[in-house]
Design a protein around this nucleic acid. Structure first.
Lengths: 350, 350
DNA sequence: CTGAAAGCGCTTACAG
DNA sequence: CTGAAAGCGCTTACAG
């Protein structure tokens, strides 16, 4: 079929020029066909399409990018400074939802990292990324500032950035904390402690703020040392719980700002023979898969990572495609009640 | 500093041509400086570098790709046909290790999906990806075949592909199963069941094969119905365990081909009041973070996802950079013994 | 409806 | 050591 086409190298690739030659039309026409433009006769288009099909031609995206000044690429930036990049199941869902939304709008995802050589702003610019989505970066990051200043459409997940072309998407973290406290209060708990996440992250800050407000609203003072800091991971929840249990008057309920930390707390409680939820009730945050599967199953605030990612993706393509204003969105979280606060089965007393 | 440079649009970007003009040299010279080439006087280079620095110039990757015929991009393909793409913590680690290795060799990662429009081969080609890493794809996939045929450097993780420029990296799955059986046999277990993963995946196939061989080697017949199928996720482990428990003679040990399924099995066992490990011992596969944190903690075969990703990344860049032969690698797995097979603390009998 | 030409931002022989 | 020119594969006015 291909006649005398010689295999110059392993990867000699068909070009638009070749398609034009073989279908006996000009390059402009082939270009129009590829881009689905009107103004091409059916007959011509069919002929060109046939050749394209036969040669399995795919346009060269790089060449197209040079001309159009847009790449169809969105850069996703992960900060893997403090924590392992994708270790948090929550971020996985975010990435998943983000990717899905982007793909459905015809964009592809470039995975960048904060600590990459040259900085992610340079990398994003190098690849002519049409927009950037940042996950887990902290405010005040010079790279972030440069990005915002460069007016490149950007949205941050779980960080509060603002600019003419920069916005954010996060969960309603404060409300989550408020829900947790209300739930525990309704169960008769009055000595509630919090195990907070990484202090320099927006979610940790907002959850702590919500916790404080709710405690005050319900007229419950926060006992000394009842605001423990953690880092979102198991170990820190375990340690924090041990510190809480070593107090003269331990809490009767704990609000952990992540399920992983809640699981660590559960572990510490079980080791000390403290009954959950009778003696201490535990609420987590995220609704990770294992929250349903651990024992006791974990009451938690479900945040929809996939939806967050999807929302960010849609917002960013809307900015690129329709010059939409940057988002400023807080998605609702839902309290999922399980055994760690209210046992479904009656437990034997001993 | 920039004199009369007007902000033509939001994103008028500095070009090499502009750098040349402002430093009073030719474009070729600027190009040489950027690419660190020799044959430029120190004086000239410094002058050019100063201008580049002041204008925060970053080369246009797309234009460079058009000329060089290589993009510096490696496409990572996830199959999200059957399972949620990144839901498996194991794949997270793989992605993490892969990204790290690629970055350290100067490559960036493009995230593609199997079910994307046009197929991943087209997308990879469109972006002039220099290589492709496939994660969780199944053999016989036409897209995979096309990729292999196209001689584009490719490595599959957990799938067995081979070609002049295509190889694979996986764990030593069969050996993992052998270790599991040996461990259980040493503990006196003789009625061992397996809960297998998705049947069309390489890991599931190899783990089952290893299991059969080991059972035979130890002279233990596999009882009828003791080969249960699962899909790597919790639920399927739970269901499989219930089926096993409903038998007249249930197993005294279970080898689950993923930690998630093992956790599901644990749940079923606890619901039925079956003691683990006294009555039934459980071994998982992966060593997910929660294997350490669940109760009882889970004996499992640790596979190093990050190392697998890293190995694949290095192999693929070696193919691109040094025309290295494609990899065919099985990384060792390590048995981590925990409470689900041998309790560390003596348990009270009741 | 169609094609020749110019040009996107780079790199790479080719001369000097 | 340095620069002018050609060309990578595309798209986009501009003519017809």
């Amino acid at each position: 079929m291909l006649g005398g086409r010689r295999a110059v190298s392993l990867r000699d690739v068909t070009t638009l020029h070749e398609i034009a030659r073989l279908s006996g039309v000009g390059k402009s026409t082939v270009s129009r066909v590829i881009n689905g433009a009107i103004g091409v006769s059916d007959e011509t288009r069919d002929r060109v399409l046939a050749v394209i099909d036969e040669l399995k031609y795919t346009p060269n995206g790089a060449a197209r990018t040079v001309r159009r000044r847009q790449s169809g690429l969105v850069a996703a930036v992960f900060d893997n400074g403090t924590a392992e990049p994708f270790q948090q199941p929550f971020f996985q869902s975010v990435l998943d939802g983000l990717k899905r939304a982007l793909n459905s709008d015809g964009y592809d995802l470039l995975l960048l990292t904060k600590d990459q050589s040259g900085g992610f702003r340079k990398r994003a610019q190098y690849f002519s990324a049409d927009a950037v989505v940042m996950i887990g970066v902290s405010e005040g990051d010079p790279d972030v500032d440069q990005l915002v200043a460069a007016q490149l459409p950007a949205v941050a997940i779980d960080a509060h950035i603002e600019g003419p072309r920069a916005g954010y998407v996060t969960s309603d973290n404060a409300d989550g904390a408020v829900q947790a406290v209300a739930h525990l209060h309704a169960l008769g708990r009055r000595r509630i402690a919090i195990i907070n996440g990484l202090a320099n992250t927006l979610p940790a800050q907002e959850r702590l703020a919500g916790f404080r407000v709710a405690m005050q609203d319900w007229g419950m003072p926060i006992a000394e040392g009842f605001e423990q800091r953690g880092d979102f991971y198991h170990e820190s929840g375990y340690e924090a719980m041990r510190r809480l249990l070593s107090k003269r008057e331990p809490p009767d309920a704990v609000f952990a700002c992540s399920d992983m930390m809640a699981l660590g707390a559960l572990q510490a409680l079980q080791e000390q023979g403290v009954h959950v939820p009778d003696e201490v009730a535990v609420v987590g945050f995220d609704d990770n898969p294992f929250a349903r599967w651990c024992r006791p199953s974990l009451t938690t605030l479900r945040q929809d990572g996939a939806l967050i990612g999807e929302t960010a993706g849609r917002a960013v393509t809307a900015m690129v495609l329709r010059d939409a204003p940057p988002p400023g969105i807080r998605l609702p979280v839902e309290l999922i009640v399980r055994d760690s606060t209210t046992p479904r089965r009656p437990e034997r007393q001993d």
